[in-house]
Structures are given as C-alpha cells and as structure tokens.
C-alpha cells in the first residue's frame, strides 16, 4: 500500500498525470487495419494509447484473445472488421459478431464494465472514422478509469488527480486486481 502511494505522490508533485488507458485494438487485415493506414496517409491525428494487433479476418478474433488482454491489464479492447457485405471472406464478420456477443457476456460476468469492450466496422477508406473511433473509445475508457484487472502501477498513478475519492477506488481496484491475478 505504501509502495503504491509514494510514486503517485511524486507524480502529483511534478505534473498532475492524466490517466492514459492501455487499449488493445484487434483489426482485420483488409478493412480496419487498412483504414488505420489510410488515417496515416491522410495524417489524421488521433490518441496514441492503443496498440494494434492485425489478424486476417475479424472472425479470427476469439474470446480468448480479448480475455487475455483484460487479464494482462488492458483498460479497453476494440474489435474491428469490415462492414457487412464487405468482408473479404464473405461472412467472417458475421461470425465475429457472434463471437463478440459471447465475449461480451463473459466480460460482463467478470465484472468488467461493458464500455471497455467495443465492436466497430471500419472500411479501408474510412481513415477519418478510424481516428474518430479511436478518440471516442479512448475517452470512454479513460472516463471509466483503469480496469479492475489492471496491474498495480496503473492504479497508483491515477490517484493523484482524483483527490478525495481515491481512497475508496484504490481499495476497490486493489482487491479486484488481486482477484484477477488468481
């Protein structure tokens, strides 16, 4: 406990840290990953706190991938694929929807807020939309704060700007983080 408080206090002294969520984005090769590239080519700036993992089709994104991300401490997970009718593999994205529904059920069961997991369709041309989705989702996850499963360093960090309420949230997150490890 004392270990956690000290770095956060130091942070608060130098510069008040805003919590930057850690977000995993799964994207299919043909649409969403390409959409992110299009955002790049068009230099559409967006928030940098996500890490992209490319798979060939959104249908490949199985629940276990999402769970592993949350288990390791992800604050948010975005699953993205082609729009309906655009799937390179005809109906892979429809399978993704079914898998996503299952994943979401378990995620809710685990006590992770619904807002930490999202499914989005982004086409290869929609660079602007990709940036929009990333910004919106990052803000949404930021508002939710660190994931209950997030590692301890994260929890220590957000205390500073939170102020009075931190004691409570710290206790909560701490116990949850402990639970997540088992």
């Amino acid at each position: 406990m004392t270990q956690q408080v000290s770095p956060s206090a130091k942070n608060a002294a130098t510069s008040p840290t805003v919590f930057d969520p850690r977000i995993v984005v799964f994207a299919c090769n043909w649409c969403s990953y390409a959409g992110a590239d299009t955002a790049g080519v068009s230099r559409i700036q967006h928030q940098p706190h996500f890490r992209m993992i490319r798979v060939m089709c959104s249908g490949r994104i199985q629940p276990a991938f999402v769970f592993r991300a949350f288990e390791k401490g992800a604050d948010g997970v975005l699953v993205s694929g082609c729009h309906f009718g655009d799937c390179h593999y005809i109906f892979g994205n429809e399978r993704a929807v079914e898998q996503f529904a299952k994943t979401m059920n378990v995620v809710k069961l685990l006590g992770i807020e619904e807002g930490r997991l999202r499914l989005e369709w982004i086409s290869a041309a929609e660079g602007g939309r990709f940036a929009e989705v990333i910004n919106e989702f990052t803000d949404q996850v930021r508002a939710l704060g660190p994931s209950p499963f997030a590692a301890e360093d994260a929890i220590a960090e957000i205390e500073a700007p939170e102020g009075g309420g931190c004691q409570h949230s710290d206790a909560d997150s701490d116990s949850d983080a402990g639970g997540g490890g088992h």
């Binding site: 993992i53 991938f65 390791k72």
Partner: peptide, 14 residues
C-alpha cells in the same frame, strides 16, 4: 497472437 498481447503488458505503464 497471445505472445503479442502479453508483450504489450510486459512493460509497466509509462
């Protein structure tokens, strides 16, 4: 894929 996910969280939050 899992190795990729794990590696993201190998480093503590900056």
């Amino acid at each position: 894929v899992l190795a990729q996910i794990d590696a993201f969280f190998d480093e503590a939050r900056p």
